[in-house]
Design a protein around this nucleic acid. Sequence first.
DNA 1: ATGCAGTACATCGTTGCCGATGTACTGCAT
DNA 2: ATGCAGTACATCGGCAACGATGTACTGCAT
Lengths: 185, 185
Amino acid sequence: MLRHNAVMLELAILGFLHDVPLHGYELRKRIAALTGHVKPVAESTLYPAIKRLEKAGLLARRTQPGAGAAPRHVLTLTAEGQAELRRRLAHPADVDITDENRWFTVLAFLRHLDDPSAQAEVLERRMAFLRQPSSFFYEGDRPLRAEEVEDPFRRGILTIARATSQAELSWLRRTLDTLRAAADD
Amino acid sequence: MLRHNAVMLELAILGFLHDVPLHGYELRKRIAALTGHVKPVAESTLYPAIKRLEKAGLLARRTQPGAGAAPRHVLTLTAEGQAELRRRLAHPADVDITDENRWFTVLAFLRHLDDPSAQAEVLERRMAFLRQPSSFFYEGDRPLRAEEVEDPFRRGILTIARATSQAELSWLRRTLDTLRAAADD
DNA sequence: ATGCAGTACATCGTTGCCGATGTACTGCAT
DNA sequence: ATGCAGTACATCGGCAACGATGTACTGCAT
């Protein structure tokens, strides 16, 4: 029964550690670079998250002298941690597909899922979501188009959302073509 | 010391009730239409939020017989509630500017801030955020451009983010022009 | 006749979020 | 000499998130 924000933070931790062992402070800087301009992560959220993952056996910790400070706890992904990362990347929750912030986090580490067809499957879920004609504003059950909304701010939402959607769909189509070509080898 | 998600949910409640009194269940459907396709709101989150706002004197409740169900609690914005809505719209927290989900919620109700120059001020904060050259990936301190990233998925993030940014900036410029013209009358 | 879906609200318990605060060390600026 | 910024981690407490569950009524399908 994991909370949703937690899932994404943990995914980022597992994803960064897949490449290279890092200590918490460095991890924090990388997460800040990745998503911090949109939504900063508090230290008091990160360190407990690390502990959770360690307790679950996904991370191992070894202590090193700090560079002019408290000793560092260098974190490494365990074999279970790598397996869990792949599981989470291959089967993200629906919110991770629909919420752009979470989706970007998934994308940032999707390369760790080394099977191209598994990667394609995830992209296809996003594509299916973007294709369904959901709006922000309705008249009864009918979704309103930007042109039908008088409020300029609400109109802006629809205009921006449509532009994003189109840009992303065209990227998805291009990338899926490449992935399918790679899977055919 | 209000939590961030709470802020946005409460803003949506205040915003919807500004137009017309609604009961909780109807409120829930409207919030689901507005943001539910991205991130659904649980009932057990909405009802306590309503209680918080009522306790703070921002909402008044009167009971009506339900349509084939439990009695409805029709909610109305108090004068304080209207003032609070305007305050929150005029001075959103930084996260409400930077996080697209929260930003869209602000936009959805920004018309309730009837002063065009106050509206323009909020849009300008978003513009300033979009203009600063922040990336998701860095080489040292230097933000990487899409072309410099080999990972196709990370490249996608940058491609999509750039397209969104450009679409939104052009909308912001157009809308700010209109608002400034309105403020000059 | 039974049950399922919709309407309408409520509470409980677990868990995560995060600001505040603390500890401890280095190095640079004033 | 004092302090501030950076490095590096930890804990505490209040509060919000939300799944699970309950209550209670209507109406339609099987």
